[in-house]
């Protein structure tokens, strides 16, 4: 029973990360620079919606208060959302989307590969599905970051600008707390601190072939994991939750 609450918090964090990623990716629907990218980004958004659905449904089961993945997504206020801030930042341009997707997919590859080995069957099963999809996301995003960074002066400068804006938000992905450390010590979840180095290695490899320099930085943005968000999340939820707030329990 002691593990119940930390595990629930952990699942909400993972589920919220996927849900907010899905929201941002889906904003590209009909706005992609070319048709092929429109298809790719909406495919990724669908993967993330599916992942969020599984994780939040599991969180609802852990909580045991009759919630569903839908009620968790559509009824929780901003401060109860536990996603990392990096996911809620608005897309500045296509380069921004691709740099973010590369950074977060590289992270997801490591996280879900490790989680696939969890003795918690639910988490392991969700991770096994997530990893197959993430492989495509990372390959696609890394390819674009390389082409854009090592492209024209304009694409290089925009990609560098995106990296500069996003980099301060990457630290939060590796934050942990005593409850999560306990889960990691029990072998339920991976020790996230140990994933930082392999993540940095992968990111550095992509950024190097993109001719982009990793920003030198000592301070990181933080807050999302504990419910303290940028103003962007409020705007997202305003739109995402509108229908269920205006017409509770509406179905179609």
């Amino acid at each position: 029973m002691n593990n119940q609450t930390p595990l629930l918090t952990y699942c909400l964090r993972l589920g919220d990360n996927a849900l907010i990623q899905s929201y941002r990716l889906s904003e590209w629907c009909s706005n992609g620079p070319i048709l092929e990218e429109d298809l790719a980004l909406t495919n990724f958004a669908l993967d993330m919606t599916g992942r969020a659905d599984l994780l939040l449904a599991y969180a609802a089961t852990l909580e045991g208060k009759g919630q569903t993945s839908d009620s968790l997504a559509y009824r929780r206020p901003e401060k109860e959302y536990l996603n990392c801030l990096i996911h809620e930042l608005p897309d500045e341009d296509f380069a921004f989307t691709m740099v973010r997707l590369m950074l977060t997919s590289a992270y997801d590859m490591l996280l879900y590969s490790a989680l696939e080995k969890s003795p918690n069957e639910n988490l392991a099963a969700i991770a096994a599905k997530a990893i197959k999809e993430t492989r495509y996301h990372l390959a696609h995003a890394a390819g674009w970051v390389e082409r854009l960074g090592d492209g024209t002066a304009e694409s290089n400068s925009r990609t560098m600008q995106a990296l500069t804006m996003l980099w301060p938000f990457t630290g939060e992905m590796f934050e942990t707390d005593s409850a999560e450390q306990q889960l990691a010590a029990d072998g339920i979840i991976p020790n996230i601190t140990a994933l930082k180095e392999p993540w940095m290695e992968k990111a550095a490899q992509v950024l190097k072939s993109a001719t982009l320099e990793i920003p030198a930085l000592k301070t990181w943005q933080t807050g999302g994991r504990t419910g303290r968000h940028t103003e962007n999340l409020g705007h997202i939820l305003c739109e995402m939750q509108y229908l269920q707030r205006a017409y509770p329990d509406a179905t179609w």
Partner: peptide, 8 residues
């Protein structure tokens, strides 16, 4: 079993 997580 679903083929894809987001299978509608």
């Amino acid at each position: 079993t679903p083929t894809y997580t987001g299978c509608p």
